[in-house]
């Protein structure tokens, strides 16, 4: 500011405000409800995640036409990628070092995380609910095998992914989760070369145990993650 401007400002100083608090208190402070908050978080889910969901659904829908006999294996191999999208999006705060900032807001990091997990988990279950029955209906294999073969890679990747993001911080965690997801996906694709090894009553028990165990671990790790937001360490 120049000297002249300073002198003019001093000469024409504005009067001090009167009854300011009284005036402001007349306005009702609108606050965001929990439901609206959860819905608002949907808008902050990355575009790439939504695009990923859509791409997986489209690929799964087209698989009976494009890959024909291998539809079961192809759809199953997409499930770890679905889980990767969910886990990496849920770890957004840690990834971009926003966790501390979000932790001290009214709707704290805990709420943000819960909202994200509700939205993403819901989307994931919708995709699973579409893909698994479709594969069970369209494939030649027994329905229970097909269903288990679709859900097991999803829950296995989710469990491993949530385990990883809780133990490793930052970008390294997402890198590890990406590697895990693709590894599971590739193992599923390799299984299609010898289907008779997996489609027998002995293996169905193994799949059931792995699926149930992974589901339990997914829920357990999810709860631990939410509880863990209460203790943010200073050193990452």
């Amino acid at each position: 500011m120049s000297k002249l401007e300073k002198e003019i400002k001093a000469a024409f100083e504005a009067p001090k405000p009167q009854k300011k608090e009284e005036f402001l208190s007349r306005f009702e402070e609108k606050q965001l409800s929990l439901t609206k908050f959860i819905l608002s978080q949907a808008g902050y889910i990355g575009k790439l995640t939504w695009f990923g969901f859509a791409a997986i659904l489209i690929c799964a829908a087209l698989s009976p036409v494009t890959v024909n006999d291998s539809a079961l294996w192809f759809v199953s191999s997409l499930m770890p990628i679905l889980a990767l999208l969910l886990v990496s999006e849920s770890a957004r705060s840690e990834r971009y070092k926003m966790a501390e900032l979000e932790a001290v807001t009214r709707f704290s990091l805990r709420s943000v995380l819960m909202a994200r997990m509700v939205i993403l988990g819901g989307m994931g279950l919708i995709v699973l609910a579409i893909c698994a029955p479709a594969v069970m209906f369209l494939c030649d294999y027994p329905a229970i095998f097909s269903g288990l073969f679709v859900v097991t890679p999803f829950f296995l990747t989710s469990a491993l992914g949530l385990l990883t993001v809780r133990r490793i911080k930052g970008q390294a965690a997402i890198y590890s989760v990406t590697a895990e997801a693709f590894f599971v996906s590739i193992l599923v694709l390799l299984a299609r070369n010898c289907p008779e090894r997996y489609m027998n009553p002995g293996m169905i028990k193994v799949f059931m145990i792995v699926a149930a165990g992974s589901l339990f671990l997914t829920v357990f790790e999810g709860i631990c993650r939410i509880k863990g937001t209460e203790e943010i360490t200073w050193s990452w």
Binding site: S77, T178, A179
Partner: peptide, 18 residues
């Protein structure tokens, strides 16, 4: 970008397999 490279490589591996 390490993650983009990893994703692209893995997708290439899957596509060549399928």
């Amino acid at each position: 970008n390490g993650m983009a490279t990893l994703s692209a490589s893995m997708l290439l591996l899957i596509v060549t397999n399928m």
